[in-house]
């Protein structure tokens, strides 16, 4: 300890203190401050760039999701449209069929009705014709048969029997 105190040089202490304080101040101003701020700035820059990249990645993912969603929607829309179209087609076909059927039925009914009426008319005509004919025949028969009484009766009977058939 004594040796240490003996060795102590005040001048060296003074110069060291002075130089070192000066050095800290000067370096702090001209070296450490710009160096540290540059390092910090660079680190900040790197961090920002990383953040931006992360953000971009997220946005990209969002965009992809959006695209996917849009695609999905479009696909769904197409699907519904197709379905609708198909339904419309089916409906149209069905409608057409129905209409055709109805038309056909109507035509058939009309035809039947016409046939029926035609038939009735024909039968009526036939009846009148037969009646006329019968009258004519009867007239003729009567004319011819009246000469023969039995024959006349027989004829009238047979004729009546025949007429009853209609």
């Amino acid at each position: 300890m004594e040796k240490l105190i003996n060795e102590f040089s005040f001048g060296l202490f003074f110069w060291q203190l002075l130089m070192f304080v000066l050095l800290v101040i000067l370096l702090g101003k001209f070296a450490w401050k710009p160096i540290l701020s540059a390092i910090e700035g660079r680190e900040e820059g790197i961090k920002d760039a990383l953040d931006a990249a992360e953000k971009a990645k997220l946005e990209m993912a969002n965009l992809n999701a959006d695209n996917e969603r849009l695609l999905q929607e479009a696909r769904a829309e197409r699907e519904t449209m197709m379905k609708e179209a198909r339904e419309i087609k089916a409906k149209m076909i069905a409608d057409a069929k129905e209409e055709a059927q109805a038309e056909a039925n109507k035509t058939i009914a009309n035809a039947q009705a016409a046939i029926e009426s035609e038939k009735k008319a024909a039968v009526a005509e036939l009846k009148s014709t037969v009646a006329t004919l019968s009258v004519d025949i009867a007239e003729k028969m009567v004319k011819s048969e009246l000469s023969n009484k039995d024959k006349q009766l027989e004829l009238v009977n047979s004729m009546l029997n025949d007429a009853k058939l209609n």
Partner: peptide, 9 residues
Amino acid sequence: ILFVFSRMA
């Protein structure tokens, strides 16, 4: 030190 670090800065 002053020279080296101010140059570095």
